[in-house]
Design a binder for these strands. Structure first.
Length: 870
RNA sequence: GCCGGGGUGGCGGAAUCGGUAGACGCAGCGGAUUCAAAAUCCGCCGCCGCAAGGUGUAAGGGUUCGAGUCCCUUUCCCGGCACCA
């Protein structure tokens, strides 16, 4: 056996061995329980980042652990290959998006392989391949036929200089990222998926997702946002016609406090009023400035302007003024809201700003209403009852809502309604590098889906990217076509699909990536039965990707593609972000140039806090930004390759698993990598020294062991139990590693040179190597082969606890006086409460702090402590 | 702004069901080994205090025999907000 741990050699050998034995190949086998372990597939951005290493190491640990437990494991990998960065790279470096993407895939695949993940590479695919995306085009046409895909106007960010639609990410402080132009909202026709038709289902099934973190279920629940309220109308007469202005409210109990209504700038009433009101027209134009991101809309200053139009209060008959408010969203509900300034915080601020009337209609016991400032209780529907509300006076929330709804219904002006915050999913993108939408626009037949025999609509790969408009719209050879229905000249849709489309079903395709005649087949039934056993990915996907994937599973069920699989992901582990500091300098026109942390020296004060930073290249200061998730856009990614090259894959894997529990965000620092490497070298040396002294048969019971040796064997079997629990139930790997470190510390301190000790040493080392094998498989493969010549760690079972080894005659209990730790006692493991109490009271340390006073109470916590209260 | 999560030594973190705060590791300090260095090994290591002891889990309050853990308030940081993936 080599006396030195040389990672490069053993990692090459181990990977070669796994390749030759097909160790990671997954084949359907009904004799074994299956374990489908899925990690979110990467976007091929160029090279792996730390988040990938973390994500895929977690997946590999769980895969290998379950394989050792006897499961038939599938761990696939692929590429989420469509997306905006490829177009940006094309612009910046004058390379074709396809070529750029495929070369990134090549590099990143080799990086993943060098990390030794047990991935079944035969199932690999990239979503930009026509063999993949043809099936989503096929599905699109089915959904279109069912009305689950439809067309309507949607609002986008429009760059008036580059004449192009921008993503929210490309709008910075209201300006286009390249042109610097002020962004405008623009309405264009887009295709939408009717996810709202499944809102009730998507909400209800959250309750059954016991394998999901509570926080993710809660976020999805709030995102779907079911609320029950009342949809009702304010009648009005305009241009000689009787009309109705519809609004939705969850606070119908406050309807008598309505002092104005507010509509969105895009609302037809606002458009009509602006016709003869130049000031209002100017305000509406102003409202159209800026991007469409909700965070921007919600944080901007609330502004409004009266339209000069009035509507009639449906219950009081009073005239109510209509305002245009920049905070009212056309996309939510009817694009109009009733305003009750007394009982809605936003309306309160708005009314104060514009001196609009505020009418109190709810009173709570012991509280005084005042216009001096907003108080929490004004808007609390769980408190108080109606006042100043005529026949509703004295009614509390629920009763008042019922009474108001009944009265509105009697007048034909409203009814109770369930509303969702969830909106339909806009899937059209005015971009090149995506899956073409399979629609043909015919002047006489309208929108016609592309027939199956003409699928796939292949995305041309050699195009010129200019950053202004979609390249496809400039390619007649792409868009000129014949109508499938009438055969006349027609134009192909040039928009592409949102890339979330690809990632909403890829996990099913892994079961049957080679099927050229169908989207999915019966193998999905084997691997996905009861849901994918473990899904692992970043917490940033907690809402959109996971919700869309759940939605797609239901769509595919309803199109008859798969049986009722239920939810796609039975167990979900949301890993925390790998975050790193950001650094930048401001270029011309205030544009931020992001600088990689590796190129920066941070200056800290004596307490270790950063006080400034300089660029290594020129020694000049750079600005310190926030600590954010590692991302290309902020250039704060740390390349794991240097780590792998210097220390090997096992050290990289061990270090990132040891640094923090998986669901916690991890602030990147490479301090401590050395320690991970040192631990592996120490493990190597322990095994080496033992092997040099001669292999023996591992001990299987406590016969002949000294007391100290029995302690070590107990520690070993406790550790086995702890590590299995950490891997299997808790999914907390840092504590599993710490437990094995403790075990080896104890091993070092125990005298093991006699025959019984040597057998115990063999047992400890064999077990420790297998306990760590899921995390550091290369060194595990090598060391297990040395400890048991001719064996293969890949086929070894996970160590099993011997209950006999855990037995203990005497235990130690802590003694507290008034909750403060004062001493310790040793008692027989089976001592009863009275005996423990007596021993604790007799403890000299305890007596000292009892100060001669009698015990008022003695609390005995079995196996832990005794608390004496005086 | 709204929704979700988090804050524990110099640092990463542990404490799993309300029961010994700081496991394990990093950094640091002292020592052994060495011609020297690297590597390795042994010891120390929250803060105050000579010690006895006191004190300490973002801040403030509460519940409890007992609170890092439960409740309330405040504060800072992170993720998401529908066209980044």
């Amino acid at each position: 056996m080599q006396d030195k741990y040389i990672p490069a050699d053993i990692e090459r050998a181990a990977q070669q061995h796994w390749g030759q034995t097909g160790a990671a190949r997954a084949v359907e086998d009904h004799a074994k329980p299956k374990y489908y372990c899925l990690s979110m597939f990467p976007y091929p951005s160029g090279k792996l980042h730390m988040g990938h290493v973390r994500n895929y190491t977690i997946g590999d640990v769980l895969s290998r652990f379950h394989a050792m437990q006897g499961y038939n494991v599938l761990q696939p990998m692929g590429w989420d290959a469509f997306g905006m960065p490829a177009e940006n790279a094309a612009l910046a470096n004058n390379v074709a998006p396809a070529g750029w993407t495929y070369s990134n895939i090549g590099y990143m695949k080799q990086q993943l392989q060098s990390l030794g993940f047990a991935i079944d590479w035969q199932r690999e695919f990239a979503t930009c391949a026509p063999e993949y995306y043809r099936w989503e085009q096929w599905l699109f046409t089915r959904l279109y036929a069912k009305g689950l895909v439809y067309k309507k106007l949607g609002t986008v960010n429009w760059d008036p200089v580059d004449h192009t639609v921008l993503a929210n990410e490309q709008v910075i402080d209201g300006r286009g990222w390249r042109s610097g132009a002020l962004i405008e909202k623009r309405e264009i026709p887009m295709y939408y998926m009717k996810i709202t038709a499944y809102a009730e289902d998507l909400l209800a099934e959250l309750d059954n997702l016991n394998g999901w973190p509570e926080q993710v279920r809660l976020m999805q629940k709030n995102w779907i946002g079911k609320s029950t309220g009342v949809r009702f109308a304010f009648p009005y007469e305009l241009d000689g016609r009787q009309e109705k202005l519809w609004v939705f409210t969850t606070r119908a109990d406050t309807i008598m406090g309505v002092t104005f209504v507010a509509v969105a700038a895009e609302h037809p009433l606002a458009t009509r009023a602006a016709q003869d009101n130049p000031e209002l027209a100017a305000f509406i134009t102003e409202c159209k400035q800026g991007g469409v991101a909700e965070a921007d809309l919600a944080t901007m200053e609330k502004k409004g302007l009266p339209t000069g139009l009035f509507v009639t209060h449906p219950l009081t008959g009073e005239r109510v003024e209509v305002w245009v408010g920049n905070y009212v969203l056309m996309s939510y509900g009817d694009g109009a809201v009733m305003a009750v300034p007394a009982h809605d915080e936003r309306d309160f601020a708005f009314a104060q700003k514009y001196q609009l009337p505020i009418k109190q209609v709810i009173a709570a016991d012991g509280e005084t209403f005042s216009l001096d400032g907003w108080q929490e209780w004004y808007g609390d529907k769980s408190r108080g009852a109606c006042v100043n509300s005529g026949r509703y006076d004295g009614l509390a929330y629920a009763a008042a809502v019922d009474a108001v709804a009944t009265d509105l219904a009697a007048k034909g002006l409203g009814e109770k309604k369930t509303q969702f915050r969830l909106r339909d999913w806009g899937i059209s993108r005015q971009r090149y590098w995506g899956c073409p939408i399979p629609i043909i626009h015919c002047p006489s037949c309208g929108d016609v889906p592309v027939p199956d025999e003409q699928l796939p609509v292949v995305l041309p790969e050699n195009v010129e990217i200019t950053g202004a408009g979609s390249p496809l719209a400039k390619m007649p050879e792409f868009y000129e076509c014949r109508c499938p229905k009438c055969g006349g000249n027609a134009r192909r849709e040039t928009d592409t699909l949102d890339t979330f489309f690809e990632s909403s079903w890829y996990f099913l395709r892994y079961a049957c990536p080679d099927n050229a005649t169908a989207m999915v087949d019966e193998r999905v039934g084997y691997w996905c039965k009861g849901g994918i056993d473990q899904y692992i990915g970043g917490i940033e996907h907690a809402i959109l990707h996971l919700l869309y994937s759940r939605f797609f599973t239901k769509l595919m069920r309803d199109v008859g593609l798969i049986g009722d699989l239920g939810e796609p992901f039975a167990n979900l582990l949301t890993q925390g972000m790998v975050v790193a500091p950001t650094f930048y300098r401001e270029g011309e026109n205030g544009k931020k140039l992001w600088i990689n942390p590796a190129d920066v020296d941070v200056v800290t004060d004596e307490r270790g806090r950063p006080t400034g930073a300089t660029l290594k290249a020129d020694g000049q200061p750079v600005t310190i930004g926030g600590t954010e998730k590692m991302a290309k856009s902020k250039n704060n990614g740390v390349d794991p390759q240097a780590l792998i090259d210097q220390y090997g894959a096992d050290t990289a894997r061990l270090f990132i698993m040891f640094a923090a529990p998986p669901d916690q965000s991890l602030e990147w620092s490479d301090a401590g990598v050395e320690g991970a490497f040192r631990f592996l070298r120490r493990l190597w040396k322990l095994v080496h020294d033992h092997v040099q002294a001669g292999l023996v048969t591992a001990c299987t019971n406590n016969d002949g062991l000294s007391a100290a040796q029995a302690d070590l064997r107990r520690k070993l079997h406790q550790t086995m139990g702890k590590v299995a629990d950490d891997y299997g139930r808790r999914k907390q790997f840092n504590t599993a590693i710490a437990a094995v470190m403790e075990l080896l510390n104890a091993y070092d301190k125990t005298h093991l040179t006699d025959a019984a000790g040597r057998a115990l040493a063999q047992e400890v080392l064999e077990s420790a190597v297998l306990l760590l094998f899921p995390i550091v498989p290369h060194i595990g493969q090598a060391l297990y082969g040395e400890l048991k010549p001719g064996s293969d760690a890949c086929r070894a079972a996970f160590p099993k606890v011997d209950p006999a080894a855990l037995k203990q005659d005497e235990i130690e209990l802590v003694v507290q006086v008034n909750g403060k730790l004062r001493g310790a006692i040793r008692v027989p493991a089976d001592a009863d409460k009275a005996a423990i109490e007596a021993a604790a009271l007799a403890n000299p340390e305890a007596q000292k702090f009892m100060d001669g006073k009698p015990a008022k109470k003695v609390v005995v916590v079995p196996g832990r402590l005794v608390n004496i209260v005086v």
